[in-house]
Write a protein that binds this DNA or RNA. Structure first.
Lengths: 218, 218
DNA sequence: GCGACTTCTGTCACAATGTGACACGACGAT
DNA sequence: ATCGTCGTGTCACATTGTGACAGAAGTCGC
């Protein structure tokens, strides 16, 4: 790995950290890209070469999580019920968080505080999630052997799973929890949503429009 | 109802219709506020007095739906399981859509085509949904008699319900369905999500702080 | 109809985000 | 050492969105 790439990664993290600190200090909206760029001695133009927008600063966590879930989905056994696979993916994200460096943990907690102040930013993350959802739904549909285009079940699997993660993320008992507490809470929410669902609901009608007479009541 | 208010409503709809047509014609991003304003002979500044942003043009449907659901929630019997109440709210939205004027139906279908081209805009609607979710969750939590701040079940009730509506909205079999087909599909998705959930999952632990003996006299 | 009052609208100025073009300098391979 | 690639800064610019102010249009009382 050359000097170039190391420097790039360093700059990227420097921007991220500077931005998070500024956001916490003076609010997200009151912080301009110019300020962020200034505090790490780069030009605003360069900022946009590292992050496609100011908003995308707060999406790195989401994007990272999506990667992990996608990888997990690909590695799960083919016959597994899709919601079970999604749960494994989400728990993989939690595992990754637990194994993260102290620096990353701090970034995560700072991000969480920023999002807490700005519901709009949570929405942003959810918005990105809607696009993610299409990709993951396609992945799930492929596993179920149905056409992704009009398979509601796959979409619902993903949508419900993501809703669970989000609720767990957003809904803390304490104002400034540590990483372990957030992870625990997200895990509990995943367990909760599992217990809410009727077992086996997602394995039944995977085989095409079979015989209408035996169409499961799902 | 003075001339003023009628004129205002007329302008508002004119802007909306002009914008939808321009979006369908040349794409959302390629359409500027200046163009929209120009095509209804108002200044861009005035445009922003009718719609707080270009994005908010595509949120009127969402906002209208939220109103209906909130009203429905308030009118449901107090003891009803929260998810059931949410389902009633969503079906009320579908009922409203079926009873809408031809003009409104056309607007809705145009909006749907615009959203279909721009996943980001769906995300936007979902983002607004995340804020909506907090309000509705508070409403649901109030009905359940628990503290809205840390009640995951209420959040999940709302999140799952909204996910169902969104999936039904987004996932059409046809490219250009008529209003009835979209409504039917959304209805089916609501039914589907109902069948996925374990009956009664949302009534059980509401009585957590209800036991008088345990109620701490803080 | 007339004047006073309120509300709506257009113009101007301006901030902030985001992009394209171009030149310069630092890195990397040979 | 040299050439090509890649990162960066500068400049110019489009677009969205806001504040301030003046004038036009609607509203109400006479």
């Amino acid at each position: 790995m050359g000097l170039r790439e190391r420097k790039k990664e360093k700059t990227r993290l420097a921007i991220l950290d500077a931005a998070l600190d500024l956001f916490l200090e003076q609010g997200y909206d009151s912080t301009t890209v110019e300020q962020i760029a200034g505090s790490v001695d780069i030009s605003p133009r360069t900022f946009f070469r590292y992050f496609s927008s100011k908003d995308s600063l707060v999406l790195w966590f989401h994007d990272h999580g999506e990667e992990i879930i996608t990888e997990t989905l690909r590695s799960r056994p083919p016959g597994e019920p899709p919601f079970t696979s999604m749960v494994h993916g989400m728990r993989a994200v939690l595992g990754d968080m637990q194994g993260s460096t102290p620096q990353d943990a701090e970034r995560f907690l700072k991000l969480r505080r920023v999002l807490d102040d700005q519901p709009r930013l949570v929405g942003l993350s959810v918005a990105r999630g809607a696009e993610t959802e299409r990709r993951l739904a396609a992945e799930v549909a492929a596993r179920r052997g149905v056409d992704p285009a009009d398979d509601r079940v796959s979409h619902l699997v993903v949508a419900i799973a993501m809703a669970a993660v989000r609720v767990g993320f957003e809904c803390p008992h304490k104002d400034e929890p540590d990483l372990g507490e957030v992870v625990e809470q997200m895990g509990e929410t995943i367990t909760l949503v599992e217990s809410m669902l009727r077992p086996g609901w997602d394995v039944q009608d995977a085989r095409e429009p079979a015989d209408p007479r035996e169409a499961p009541d799902v």
